[in-house]
């Protein structure tokens, strides 16, 4: 198995290929233009327009299939497979944990939630579960960007001669100050959560629009 002291790592490889990186950096520009229109004109989209937007993000930009990429990686990349199944000290291997996790989540959503829906449709547990799905998704988006952002830091740092040792450090090197990012994320999550549970006090923030 290779390790982090490979020449690639020390010399500072690239995270994305040139064209991929250009695409990744340019893509948000189109959405920022849309956000500008949204905020300036307080645009209200019809359900059809919203469906079109979701279709673009869900299917054109891979929202639907990207979750399978993980499984694709797990099955098709031997290095990842080995890492998942290798023994860890004082803990079951990751594949076992994943299996248990998979079963427990399925039982919860296939048995517990339908049961609650029948017995007490207005249960806060159901709402909390659905909100958790949304929040965990948002958290996941954020943490991926943060992780790749840190990888960017390490790669670029490694191109500076005196900073090569950063790769050899035994712990994460947080070049960005993470505090504001976390604060931003969690306050946003709290806001999102409150607006879902009880939208009324927050309606003024939406300029008359109901929250998503």
């Amino acid at each position: 198995m290779t390790n982090s002291n490979t020449s690639q790592f020390k010399l500072g490889g690239t995270l994305f290929e040139t064209k991929a990186e250009q695409f990744i950096l340019i893509l948000p520009v189109f959405f920022f233009v849309g956000i500008g229109f949204d905020l300036i004109q307080s645009t209200q989209y019809s359900p059809q327009e919203k469906s079109l937007g979701l279709f673009v993000s869900q299917f054109i930009f891979l929202n639907h299939i990207h979750v399978f990429f993980t499984f694709f990686l797990t099955f098709s990349v031997p290095e990842v497979r080995q890492w998942l199944t290798e023994k860890r000290s004082h803990a079951p291997n990751l594949a076992t944990l994943l299996g248990l996790f998979f079963i427990s989540i399925y039982l919860y959503w296939a048995i517990a939630v339908p049961y609650l829906r029948k017995t007490s449709p207005d249960s806060a547990v159901i709402k909390a579960s659905i909100i958790a799905v949304i929040l965990i998704g948002t958290y996941h988006n954020f943490i991926q960007s943060l992780g790749l952002s840190l990888a960017y830091n390490r790669i670029i740092k490694a191109q500076i001669p005196n900073c090569v040792q950063m790769f050899d450090a035994g712990k994460a090197t947080n070049v960005d100050s993470l505090g504001p990012s976390w604060l931003s994320h969690f306050s946003e999550m709290a806001f999102f959560c409150f607006s879902k549970i009880s939208p009324a006090p927050y309606l003024w923030l939406y300029d008359g629009r109901s929250p998503r």
């Binding site: 695409f23 990744i24 893509l27 948000p28 189109f30 959405f31 920022f32 849309g34 956000i35 937007g53 979701l54 673009v56 993000s57 869900q58 054109i60 930009f61 891979l62 929202n63 990207h66 948002t138 996941h140 988006n141 991926q144 960007s145 790749l148």
Partner: peptide, 10 residues
């Protein structure tokens, strides 16, 4: 939509 799209393309 931007949040979802960028995440997936990355």
């Amino acid at each position: 939509w931007g949040m979802l799209s960028c995440h997936r393309v990355e």
